[in-house]
Design a protein around this nucleic acid. Structure first.
Lengths: 117, 117
DNA sequence: CTGAATCCGCGAAGATACTG
DNA sequence: CAGTATCTTCGCGGATTCAG
């Protein structure tokens, strides 16, 4: 959890890096993408983000929360319910993610690959 | 070098992932960013992308070349000269990188961080 | 100058099992 | 349901050396 700290002290502060440190990584893009369509529960996210383990899902969500991109909302119920949604800051990133997805989709079509999202 | 292959066979094909696999990673963002301003030589890139080793620079450039985002141009001279530039495909990503950098810069200012790029 | 080749440590990511 | 805990594995990336 002290990863961000390490990165900050280490290399020079560059806007491109700063941004990639926040939305880069293996699952963050997809996570933001799915949340951009609306609030989702923990389990729902886990099902949509294929191949992610609970551990990584939690970790990624925590990082996004620390960076102020994702809001965590706990309902004190039985069974427990935790919902995640984008903060205004996180919403600012949606257009980029969408553009990126469009670009990816276009490239995939050109290469004859199927695309599910 | 078979990394891309492994990724492809493994998880489902998702446009967001597809894109992030191509421009994600530690140095790719900065690399594209610097090349967006014009053709650069190998050594020049190494100097601008602080903290990168020759090995990683070569590796990242090769990956971008395989993905058709970067064009490698070798001049048969002594001393050798190798220049890199963005392909049309790579150029398509520039607006995205720039917007992302703007976003990062704005956030950094809000947090009182200096920004060099 | 522009790389290629090799070795290797360490942290990230995966698997699995368990809990409130 | 929504996570934790623990263990292991793996490959990124650094350091170094060598080549054309």
């Amino acid at each position: 959890m002290e990863k961000r700290e390490k990165i900050n002290h280490r290399d020079t502060v560059c806007a491109v890096d700063y941004a990639f440190q926040r939305i880069g990584g293996k699952h963050k893009g997809r996570l933001i993408y799915h949340l951009s369509k609306g609030t989702l529960r923990y389990g729902e996210l886990g099902r949509r983000i294929t191949g992610i383990t609970p551990k990584m899902l939690t970790q990624v969500l925590r990082e996004l929360e620390e960076d102020g991109l994702v809001k965590r909302h706990v309902y004190l119920e039985v069974p427990p319910r935790v919902e995640y949604s984008l903060t205004p800051s996180g919403m600012e990133l949606v257009p980029f993610i969408v553009l990126l997805a469009d670009w990816g989709r276009a490239k995939m079509n050109k290469e004859g690959l199927a695309c599910e999202n």
